[in-house]
Design a binder for these strands. Structure first.
Lengths: 166, 166
DNA sequence: CAGTATCCGCTACGATACTG
DNA sequence: CAGTATCGTAGCGGATACTG
């Protein structure tokens, strides 16, 4: 048992800020819950697993097949993490070919609700973002172009001067 | 200019799923917008920057001081990303000591609204999560203990048998 | 079937140094 | 002040092999 990585055991409890929403309180250096949850939902697979389990309970291999691209290791790891955080429950059926079912806990389901708001936002604004990106890239490309041209002109001028041609 | 990393230029446009909320559509292998936005808001600093800029416009060094722990490099990178995505606007004032102001765009502000829901959720459930984690850790520790003890007992028995004592 | 153990590459991030 | 360039490192995630 190597513990490997994951959240440490001492949560570094981050002070009850009942005074509402102090930016520097809910996410700063000390490992606050907010950071940890955010890291969880944003890691490569958790969100997908949560979304799938929201529909119905699934077993390990069902998830594996449903996700396509996930390695056995990452699925196991992801599920362990979610289980530890109380977002997913794991029930082992003691039968001959082992059968393990995973399902969202109420906590996990409520998180999924919140997450959907974010997904919805993204869906609604993906065009805005795509546009912004294109515009930005063009802007950068153009000013890159100009600086290079200016440099070239400076060089040319310098050469002319040195060769006494000007 | 090395481009370094970040989102590729071809967004890999991920199909208008107006049929609502197909899990496998909004987050799968192809780099969908959802994944990219999620990665952005979940990366180590973006969220903090957005939250700070929601209060008022800030300059580079103000952000640097406000965040405490962020490196110059990461702040610059984070701001470039946010700017590219159209979440933050950057205005350069051509004065002697250069002055650059950053502020949330309407798009960025609307994202911040959505994000707050998530932060709120986390604040409300951090105790549930902490409890779940403790319970899980205990459960694991206990069953670790038992398996070890059982192994020890098996070994002891085996030794007894081999030495003809039993 | 449902995992764990091991190895290993990649890149995100931090520290440092330099520039307009 | 507001950055970029460069280098070094840690940990996430993939591939593979093995177990109850």
């Amino acid at each position: 048992m190597t513990m490997e990585d994951g959240t440490s055991k001492s949560p570094g409890y981050c002070g009850d800020t009942d005074g509402d929403y102090d930016v520097l309180q809910w996410d700063t250096r000390e490992d606050c819950e907010v950071r940890q949850i955010l890291d969880r939902i944003a890691d490569k697979w958790s969100l997908l697993v949560i979304a799938l389990l929201d529909q119905r309970s699934l077993r390990f291999t069902e998830l594996r097949r449903a996700i396509d691209g996930i390695s056995q290791r990452m699925l196991a790891r992801t599920l362990r993490h979610l289980e530890r955080d109380g977002l997913v429950s794991r029930t082992v059926h003691p039968v001959v070919p082992p059968r393990v079912d995973y399902e969202l806990t109420p906590l996990g389901a409520s998180l999924h609700h919140t997450i959907r708001a974010l997904v919805t936002w993204t869906e609604q604004h993906q065009n805005d973002i795509a546009t912004a990106r294109s515009a930005y890239d063009v802007r950068v490309a153009v000013e890159q172009e100009t600086t290079e041209r200016e440099a070239a002109e400076r060089d040319a001028l310098a050469r002319d001067v040195l060769s006494g041609r000007r």
